[in-house]
Computed example of a mutant assay.
Amino acid sequence: MPHVLIVEDEPSIVTPLRFLMEQEGCSVQVVDDGAHVMDALDQQLPDLVLLDVMLPSRNGYDLCNAIRQRPDGNDLAIIMLTVKGREVDIQKGYAMGADAYITKPFAVADVVATARKYLPDA
């Protein structure tokens, strides 16, 4: 079963993302604070991280870069989800190691469709 880590502090985004990823056959873990992401990765390495940029404690760009620096950091996909939609922000996301970058507001179904591209078969 593919494992997805949702790193998002907004419940109105977490709830539908969790539901739809579970419908896709994934196990889901949610972290709502940037300070707890690395601990979550140590507990169980996900196949995919849905990563918000604007988080309490630690921003998503920094987290994306830190994940990629881990020995197992290239074994997972990272999709950044953010209101930061300027070209410079998007380029920064990819430079930090994101596989995909989706700007808010977004249709949750579009996030799931993008996630499918990076998930192993359920």
Score class of each variant (00 low, 15 high):
A115S: 07
V88Q: 14
D121F: 06
A115N: 03
V28W: 12
V111Y: 13
D42A: 09
T15I: 12
A109M: 11
D121C: 02
G93T: 04
V112A: 08
L5S: 03
Q69A: 06
N65Q: 15
R68A: 03
S27Y: 07
S12F: 10
L50W: 01
V49I: 12
F106G: 00
S27H: 13
D89E: 07
K92W: 10
F106V: 07
V14L: 11
V53P: 02
L55P: 00
Y101I: 01
A40Y: 01
T82Y: 07
I79A: 10
A77Q: 10
Q69N: 04
V88N: 09
G73K: 05
G60N: 07
D72R: 09
T114R: 10
L51Q: 03
L45Q: 10
D110N: 12
R58T: 06
L76W: 06
T114A: 14
Q43V: 08
G73W: 12
P56V: 11
Y118R: 00
A107T: 06
V7S: 06
P120H: 13
V112Q: 06
M21G: 05
Q44T: 03
R18N: 09
L17Y: 01
P56S: 14
L76N: 06
A113D: 08
Q44K: 10
M96T: 09
S12T: 03
E8L: 05
H3Y: 15
R58C: 13
R68P: 04
I78H: 06
E22I: 00
T114G: 03
I102G: 07
D33W: 05
P105K: 15
P56C: 14
A77D: 09
M96Y: 15
L51V: 00
L76G: 01
V111W: 12
Y61I: 00
C64T: 03
R70K: 08
I90G: 06
N59S: 00
D99F: 11
D33Q: 02
L55S: 04
N74D: 15
L48S: 05
A113R: 08
M54V: 12
K84E: 10
L50S: 04
I102N: 06
D47L: 02
R18C: 12
D42T: 03
K104W: 14
L20H: 13
E8R: 01
M21D: 08
Y61E: 05
K104Y: 15
Y101L: 02
L51F: 04
V88Y: 05
V28L: 14
I78E: 13
E87C: 02
G97F: 10
G97E: 13
E8H: 02
T82H: 04
R70Q: 12
I78P: 00
V28A: 14
D62H: 03
A95D: 15
L45R: 07
R58P: 01
P46V: 02
P120M: 15
